[in-house]
């Protein structure tokens, strides 16, 4: 049982993502409060799309996002440091391919 005095009277939080142009991935813009998804879209438009920032908006309830914790940073990201072959720059481009440019 939750104590009514401690109940959150604020609207739920939504994360806002914008697609800058066709074919581009959606980028995180920020967050808004809103009572439901339709209003979240409108608020996102009013808060973040006032200067022609994009062509499409996603809103996602913030509590639906699962995030990694700071302690995960080591196991998640450090192993990539010594694996240079995972970057495209590791490979040299054959001369025949270069010529075609």
């Amino acid at each position: 049982m939750s104590n009514p005095a401690e109940q959150n009277t604020e609207w739920p939080l939504w994360e806002v993502f914008f697609q800058p142009s066709n074919g581009k991935p959606f980028e995180h813009a920020g967050s808004v409060h809103a009572p439901d998804s339709e209003m979240a879209l409108q608020n996102a438009r009013d808060t973040y799309a006032r200067r022609n920032e994009g062509i499409a908006i996603w809103v996602v309830p913030s509590d639906q996002i699962t995030a990694s914790s700071p302690e995960d940073r080591g196991p998640f990201f450090d192993p990539a440091n010594d694996k240079a072959y995972r970057h495209p720059q590791f490979y040299s481009v054959p001369r025949a391919v270069k010529k075609r440019k």
Binding site: V32, H33, N43, D46
Partner: peptide, 11 residues
């Protein structure tokens, strides 16, 4: 009534 709505009305 809310920050977001304040912005919307001003827009």
């Amino acid at each position: 009534p809310e920050l977001e709505e304040d912005l919307a009305l001003a827009n």
